[in-house]
């Protein structure tokens, strides 16, 4: 293997990881940016998406690619349920920031237990996957990698279009910037919150399908990813979506490099160390501002 091959290898796995992280992180960033909500049930949404695909294809016998629309539908429902189970009752109250953490944590416990009850704790294979790949020099680029990157890019473009060019998207961004001004325009905050929850649910569910396709589907799938996604959001600056996407890929390539050069064991602690350093240097993340929330 030449140096070039190594670099290529790192880039291929880094971009695959980055695509999955970005899809997941955007939902989290959006929730924070619009409603100041730290969603500790994000990992549950990820796991729910993965299992929706497993269920639709493995249990109901659909074709492999139907896993994705199945995950999207279930993710959408999960977002709605999460809103009515938690945020609906506390948004706007003084202790929202803290209590929403606890409430979503409660939901996370429930979801994980239900998944274990329904699907057992044993890992299952994610059917949304392609075999084989092509060689770029000495480096194998699996078709699965291309699939993941394509899905991630399409999703990011779709979200960008939704936020920039639609009435709903503008209202979401407006609410994130000033809820009071948005209300003056006649925008009902609750409707926006529900929409954002649905978007976050769908994105997280899709990321769950992608992530489990490179590993396995298990009830704790979301927890590990959630932590990495948290780090990404914090380093980027909570709520900043373009920054979040950039940092997703940057940290993923870094993670791939650490895994390649040292071992998988050190990847997470080292990433964390880097994140702490960045935060000590810039307490609101690389792209975050002290007050202004950006979407």
């Amino acid at each position: 293997m030449t140096v070039l091959d190594s670099v290529l290898q790192i880039l291929v796995s880094g971009i695959t990881l980055g695509g999955m992280y970005a899809v997941s992180a955007i939902g989290l960033a959006l929730l924070w940016g619009v409603m100041g909500m730290l969603n500790m049930a994000h990992g549950s949404l990820i796991a729910i998406g993965a299992y929706a695909s497993v269920f639709a294809v493995g249990y109901l016998g659909g074709t492999w690619y139907l896993g994705l629309p199945a995950a999207m539908i279930v993710g959408c429902l999960a977002g709605v349920l999460l809103y009515f189970a938690t945020a609906r009752w506390m948004v706007g109250s003084g202790q929202f920031e803290m209590n929403i953490i606890i409430a979503t944590v409660g939901v996370a416990i429930v979801v994980k237990s239900l998944l274990i009850i329904g699907f057992t704790g044993y890992p299952q294979r994610q059917p949304f996957a392609l075999e084989g790949g092509i060689y770029l020099g000495n480096v194998l680029v699996p078709y699965q990698t291309m699939l993941i990157v394509c899905v991630a890019i399409i999703l990011m473009m779709a979200l960008s279009w939704l936020l920039k060019a639609t009435r709903m998207g503008r209202a979401i961004r407006a609410t994130a910037q000033s809820q009071k001004a948005a209300a003056l325009m006649g925008i009902p905050a609750e409707r926006i919150y529900l929409q954002v929850m649905v978007i976050a649910g769908v994105l997280a569910a899709i990321s769950g399908v992608l992530i489990s396709s490179t590993a396995n589907t298990s009830p704790s799938l979301g927890e590990v990813t959630m932590l990495k996604v948290f780090i990404i959001c914090v380093v980027a600056g909570l709520g900043n979506i373009p920054g979040t996407i950039l940092i997703s890929f940057a940290l993923a390539v870094l993670e791939a490099a650490i895994q390649y050069a040292l071992s998988a064991k050190w990847a997470f602690p080292l990433l964390l160390g880097i994140a702490v350093m960045i935060l000590i240097w810039r307490p609101y993340g690389l792209f975050g501002a002290a007050r202004i929330r950006k979407v």
């Binding site: 948290f230 994140a275 993340g285």
Partner: peptide, 10 residues
């Protein structure tokens, strides 16, 4: 939230 996320990750 930054403190929460970071300490959880640690």
């Amino acid at each position: 939230a930054y403190v929460a996320l970071l300490t959880l990750a640690i």
